[in-house]
């Protein structure tokens, strides 16, 4: 143990050791999150639902997310229409704008954008709220009063998110398509009636259902991540802030990963 070697080690961590440690850390984190998710689902699907709590969360998660979901959708739809138009222009395919906008929004962007926005608004919000309860010993108090936090706190948030996300995504589909229509009709000289007829004729039930199924999964991911990070929040304002950040980042990445996996699955089974 020479001094030189220890100080060298402090400056440049051994990369192999670092990779090993990170891998183990990641795996153990995945394990804990999975265990947590299983416990939330067990609580959520055991019948003795706390309807008052669920309703409160539906309002908090669903209703108050409408503005942010609507605004994001209209801009995404508008930008999509513009890009498809310019791109299609190169080989004379401008007339496909309504179809591609409708398909892109319902199968991908409506759900993904809603999922991402709610990873910020809802997942971080849940993590901050649960984290604050954790560090002020309210979770301990719940346990001593014979209330299981999985039943009383986490399951209502999980159920509310799984129920409201599809509704929000449906709203986002409509507003997103409207965003594309606005740009096409008022900016790109499309005929309004033709645009709308093309959209309606082209879309199938499956396109919409695919987005809504994704939404349920995103809701589960967002609520689980928020509750998980909140419940292991460290004391203090920085601890709670960190829990909120981690849950937002984690939920966003998982939403995108889940989206890709589900898209693959749906394409493979042909819906």
């Amino acid at each position: 143990m020479s001094h030189a070697s220890t100080s060298k080690r402090r400056g440049f961590p051994n990369p192999i050791a670092w990779i090993g440690r990170s891998t183990i850390g990641l795996l153990s984190e995945v394990g804990k999150l999975t265990n947590f998710a299983v416990r939330i689902m067990a609580a959520a699907f055991s019948p003795s639902w706390n309807f008052a709590q669920i309703w409160k969360q539906v309002i908090a998660i669903g209703f108050y997310s409408l503005p942010v979901v609507g605004l994001s959708a209209v801009f995404i739809g508008a930008a999509l229409a513009l890009n498809v138009y310019t791109g299609g222009n190169r080989f004379g395919a401008e007339q496909f704008v309504p179809n591609i906008v409708a398909l892109g929004i319902t199968r991908e962007l409506g759900a993904t954008i809603t999922g991402l926005m709610l990873a910020g608004r809802v997942s971080a919000g849940i993590a901050a709220e649960i984290g604050a309860m954790k560090v002020t010993e309210q979770i301990d108090a719940l346990k001593t009063l014979s209330a299981n936090p999985f039943r009383y706190l986490y399951a209502p948030r999980f159920l509310a998110a799984c129920l409201t996300l599809p509704i929000l995504v449906f709203v986002s589909d409509i507003i997103g398509i409207m965003g594309g229509w606005l740009v096409s009709v008022f900016g790109l000289d499309f005929d309004s009636t033709t645009y709308l007829r093309n959209t309606v004729d082209f879309l199938t039930m499956e396109d919409i259902v695919v987005g809504l199924i994704k939404a349920v999964v995103f809701g589960a991911v967002i609520a689980t991540m928020g509750c998980y990070q909140g419940s292991k929040s460290k004391a203090g304002a920085t601890g709670v802030g960190r829990a909120a950040t981690l849950s937002m980042v984690g939920a966003a990445v998982l939403v995108l990963a889940a989206n890709y996996m589900m898209s693959t699955l749906f394409v493979n089974i042909g819906i």
Binding site: E137, Q138, A141, T144, L145, S146
Partner: peptide
């Protein structure tokens, strides 16, 4: 727990 009461140092009110 049903037979124990606890006053937390911080209060821990909901």
């Amino acid at each position: 727990r049903a037979r124990i009461g606890m006053l937390f140092q911080s209060g821990a009110l909901f």
